[in-house]
Amino acid sequence: MYNQLVSYINNYSTTPLNDSEIERIKSIFLPKKLRKRQYFLQQGEVCKYLGFVVKGALRQYSVDDRGNEHIIRLSIENWWAGDRESFTMLTPSLYYIDAWEETDLLIATQADLSTLNELPAFIETKNRLDDNHAFALQKRVNATISLSVEERYDELSKTYPEFIQRFPQHIIASYLGITKETLSRVRSKAVKK
C-alpha cells in the first residue's frame, strides 16, 4: 500500500526518498478503507484529511436545491481526494466525496502533512501537483465555456479514458455538465465516426 505512494512521490521528484524519509511517510499516512457509496466527506463538515487513492474510485460533488448532483472531480488510483479549500482554510465543505467503488486510501491531516515540508522529494512533488492541478482546472473551465458537448466528451475520453470505463454514464454526464440523454447522443455519434 505504501509502496504505491512512495513510487508516486519518487516519480514526481528528482530527489528520491531515502529509507528514513520513507519510514516517516509511512508514519504520517494512515490506511483507510471505504465501502462503495461510503462518504469520505459530507457537505458542511470540515475536510480533516487528504487521501491518496491506492485502489478504487471516488467522486466529489455538490447537490443543488432540486437534488441534482454536480460532479466537480473524479479520483482514481494515484489521485488525491479531498476538498482543498476546506482542508486548507478549515471551513465547512460545500461538497460531498464518496466512494464509487470499494476504495483504499492513505490519509493524512494538514498538521501531519506540514511536517513533511522538510523532505525535498515531498516539497517537489507537492509543487508539481499544485501546478498540475491549476493547469487541469484552467483547461476544464476553458472547455466548459468554449467547447461543444462533443468536443468536451472527446477531450475527456482522450485525456482520461479510464473515467469513461470506470464510471457510469450519469456520472460522466454530470461531470461534463450535461444530461444522460445528451451524453447518450454524443456517444452514439462518436461510435459512428
Results as ranks from 00 to 15, higher is better:
171 I>Q: 13
115 T>N: 12
58 L>T: 15
33 K>T: 08
10 N>H: 10
151 E>Q: 12
166 R>K: 15
168 P>S: 11
104 D>W: 04
102 E>M: 05
112 D>R: 06
61 Y>V: 01
47 C>D: 05
13 S>L: 11
80 W>L: 14
36 K>A: 12
131 D>P: 00
75 S>C: 08
152 R>P: 05
40 F>C: 06
45 E>Q: 15
54 V>M: 05
38 Q>F: 00
21 E>H: 13
75 S>P: 01
137 L>A: 15
53 V>M: 09
125 T>P: 03
179 T>Q: 10
109 T>F: 09
193 K>P: 00
80 W>T: 06
2 Y>L: 06
31 P>Y: 07
81 A>S: 14
14 T>A: 12
55 K>V: 04
69 E>N: 11
40 F>M: 06
176 L>T: 05
49 Y>R: 07
187 R>S: 10
72 I>E: 01
71 I>C: 08
170 H>Q: 13
120 P>T: 12
54 V>I: 14
155 E>W: 11
96 Y>H: 15
108 A>Q: 06
28 I>P: 05
160 Y>T: 00
138 Q>M: 13
85 E>T: 12
153 Y>P: 07
140 R>Y: 02
94 L>S: 14
67 G>L: 02
77 E>Q: 15
96 Y>Q: 06
109 T>R: 04
188 S>G: 15
49 Y>K: 07
139 K>I: 03
147 L>Q: 13
87 F>S: 07
56 G>T: 02
131 D>V: 14
92 P>N: 09
120 P>R: 13
98 D>G: 05
80 W>F: 15
15 T>F: 10
18 N>L: 07
101 E>I: 00
